[in-house]
C-alpha cells in the first residue's frame, strides 16, 4: 500500500468518521441546550425572518465601520468565495462529493479553478498577515486560529502543487493533497472552522431575539 492508497482508503474513511462524529456531537450538544423561556409579550412577530435578516445583514459591513473593516472583509470574502468555487466547481472534487452523497453537478474549466485557487491562496496569506500585524487581532488570536489557517491553506497549496506536478511525483502530491484535506475534516468540528455550521445558528438566534423585541438591526 502506498501513500495514495492510504489517503484514498483508511485515512479517508476514518477522517470522515471523525468529521461526522464531531459534527453530530457539537450540533446536538448545542441545539439541545436548555433555553430559558421568554415570558415577555413579543413586541413584533416574524422571528424566523428576523433570524434570516441578521444572518445576511451581519455579513455586510455597517457604514460606520466600513473604512476600518473593509480590508479584512474583502480578504475574507475573497478566500471564502474562492474556496467555494474550488471545492464545488472542480470536477474531481464534484466526483468525490457525488461518490459520498449521490449529488452531482457540472464543473468549471480547470483554468477558472486554478485562477480561483491562486486568488484564494493570496487572500489567505493576506488574512494571516493582518492577523499577525493587527495590534488587537494579534492579542485575540490563539493556537486554534493559526492551526485552522494552516489546515485551510494546506489543501489549497497541495492542490495547486498537484495540478502543477511540482515538487514530487504526481501520485505523492495527490496523496498529500487528499491527506491535507483529511486533516481539515478531522479538525473541522473541534476548532474554529466549525463556524461554517455554527455561524448561521448563532446569528439566527440573535436575530430572532431582536425581532421579538421589535429591533431591526
Amino acid at each position: 500500500m502506498n501513500l495514495l492508497d492510504f489517503a484514498r482508503g483508511a485515512a479517508m474513511k476514518w477522517s470522515l468518521a471523525v468529521f461526522v462524529f464531531g459534527i453530530f456531537w457539537r450540533l446536538t450538544g448545542i441545539l439541545l441546550l436548555h433555553r430559558t423561556h421568554d415570558y415577555s409579550v413579543p413586541r413584533a412577530h416574524g422571528a424566523l425572518l428576523g433570524a434570516l435578516r441578521t444572518i445576511i445583514a451581519r455579513s455586510w459591513p455597517r457604514r460606520e465601520f466600513r473604512a476600518r473593516t473593509a480590508y479584512g472583509l474583502a480578504v475574507s470574502y475573497a478566500f471564502h468565495i474562492g474556496l467555494a468555487i474550488v471545492v464545488f466547481g472542480f470536477v474531481p472534487h464534484i466526483l468525490l462529493i457525488r461518490s459520498l452523497t449521490g449529488l452531482g453537478w457540472n464543473g468549471l474549466p480547470d483554468g477558472v479553478i486554478y485562477f480561483c485557487a491562486v486568488v484564494t491562496l493570496i487572500a489567505l496569506i493576506m488574512a494571516l498577515i493582518r492577523r499577525v500585524t493587527h495590534p488587537v487581532l494579534k492579542l485575540l488570536s490563539n493556537f486554534d486560529d493559526y492551526f485552522s489557517w494552516v489546515v485551510t491553506a494546506a489543501p489549497v497549496v497541495t492542490g495547486l502543487l498537484t495540478v502543477a506536478h511540482y515538487g514530487a511525483r504526481y501520485e505523492t502530491l495527490l496523496a498529500l493533497h487528499i491527506l491535507s484535506f483529511e486533516v481539515l475534516l478531522v479538525w473541522f468540528p473541534f476548532g474554529k472552522l466549525m463556524h461554517g455550521l455554527l455561524l448561521p445558528v448563532a446569528r439566527g438566534q440573535t436575530g430572532a431575539f431582536y425581532a421579538r423585541r421589535g429591533v431591526n438591526p
Binding site: D5, R8, G9, A10, M12, K13, W14, L16, A17, V18, V20, F21, G22, I23, F24, W25, T28, P92, H93, L95, L96, S99, L100, L174
Partner: peptide, 21 residues
C-alpha cells in the same frame, strides 16, 4: 474516478453519527 475514496464502511460512518449524537 481517481479523486474518490476506495474504502467501504458505511457502517463506520453510521456508527460515528450515532455515537456523536
Amino acid at each position: 474516478a481517481l479523486s474518490t475514496g476506495t474504502w467501504s464502511g458505511g457502517t463506520v460512518l453510521g456508527a460515528a453519527v450515532v455515537a456523536g449524537a
